[in-house]
């Protein structure tokens, strides 16, 4: 009855993203001037940087949500990214009048497509909310709401997943669980996650960039070894955490 593996619906999940010549400014402030970066197909990229440096702006530009930006943002196959990305915010952005299940199926509902209830139910079960499909968001805790948002992100089944500090508003234990869940369920997709937490990047990143400066630039990127999610107890994670903190300190004078 239930799809045994509801997480992998489409066959081609691996496209990369190529950003070049990206420019963005508000008034006299230049956020980016000629920014270029490549995100490899299937990579889990974390972007670290201090608050306000432009991490979220880059993500929003890739998502096509910044109308006054210039530059080229294309998929590695040369096609446009429209319709191939899904976006997850720090806030759960659940619609308060829809139950958890209907929130998960929002994309299909908006596009006028048939709603796959069994797949949505299975995804809710995967994020540990099998018992609460018909609850309204206000009846759920912050961590549970963010899980629904994760299920909604997975339901979209897009090859590129953009995440803007998705777990920064939940408590430490919930955050760790959500990180494990995301690394597991998003494996194979191209993920770009903005975070201000070096520990999060140390656990999840197969590539870690540090963003700094004004106008902002990205460093060449750091490619930690090993599969994700890395265990907290793993001594390598502690080393990585230290390394990334050092890079952040260098980048932010």
């Amino acid at each position: 009855m239930l799809d045994p593996n509801p997480n992998t619906g489409s066959d081609d999940l691996t496209i990369g993203i190529r950003v070049s010549g990206a420019q963005l400014g508000f008034g006299d402030t230049k956020i980016f001037a000629d920014l270029a970066v490549d995100f490899a197909p299937g990579s889990f990229t974390c972007i670290l940087g201090s608050s306000g440096v432009g991490k979220s702006s880059l993500l929003r530009m890739i998502a096509g949500l910044v109308p006054n930006s210039t530059g080229t943002i294309v998929a590695s196959d040369g096609e446009a990214l429209t319709g191939r990305i899904t976006y997850m915010d720090q806030r759960d952005l659940l619609l308060p009048w829809l139950c958890a299940l209907d929130n998960v199926m929002l994309g299909a509902r908006l596009r006028g497509e048939p709603q796959d209830r069994s797949r949505a139910t299975a995804l809710l079960a995967q994020v540990g909310l099998a018992d609460h499909p018909h609850k309204l968001p206000r009846q759920l805790s912050g961590g549970m709401r963010q899980r629904v948002a994760l299920a909604r992100t997975l339901m979209e089944d897009r090859p590129v997943v953009l995440m803007d500090e998705p777990f920064s508003a939940v408590d430490a234990l919930t955050r760790m669980k959500l990180q494990d869940l995301s690394a597991r369920l998003l494996a194979g997709r191209t993920v770009v996650m903005v975070t201000h937490d070096p520990m999060e990047a140390a656990r999840l990143g197969t590539c870690v960039h540090v963003m700094s400066g004004s106008p902002a630039t990205l460093d060449d990127g750091f490619h930690p070894a090993g599969s994700v999610p890395r265990e907290l107890a793993d001594p390598e994670v502690a080393d990585l955490h230290r390394t990334l903190l050092g890079k952040l300190e260098l980048a932010v004078p």
Binding site: A63, L65, Y87, L95, G107, R109, L110, R111
Partner: peptide, 22 residues
Amino acid sequence: GWLDLAETMTGGKRPFAVLLRV
């Protein structure tokens, strides 16, 4: 944020659905 989410879900192609549903 809801409108941004709807924008990425629909590619901006279904403004009437967004009006009706959001």
